[in-house]
């Protein structure tokens, strides 16, 4: 059976750390960085990358357009 695997890329300079992507993620992939970006915001990052299903919910709710989502189908 094919397995879906996703990944999230965050434009960390653009992210304002609103955390709405963290709330929107159904697989609890995202969290906030300990580091801050140039504007002083903790930015979103994958804290549990293996769980990502590439559903793009995080990107869809992101107000600043900082999230790109990638997805592959892995054949077993």
């Amino acid at each position: 059976m094919a397995k879906i695997k996703g990944a999230v890329e965050v434009n960390t300079n653009r992210c304002k750390g609103c955390e709405l992507c963290v709330v929107a993620c159904p697989a609890k992939v995202l969290g906030m960085s300990k580091q801050v970006n140039a504007k002083g915001y903790n930015y979103a990052c994958m804290v549990n990358p293996d769980a990502c299903i590439g559903c793009a919910s995080c990107g869809i709710v992101c107000p600043d357009g900082c999230i790109s989502v990638y997805k592959v189908k892995i054949e077993n």
Partner: peptide, 27 residues
């Protein structure tokens, strides 16, 4: 391995430019 152009399923539209928006976080 997953983050490659051919696997992209979601990104901001290209006519939305790279100017940083002045809105508050979460607006």
């Amino acid at each position: 391995d997953i983050i490659k152009p051919e696997n992209l399923v979601y990104a901001k539209p290209s006519i939305m430019n790279d100017n940083t928006m002045h809105y508050c976080p979460g607006c």
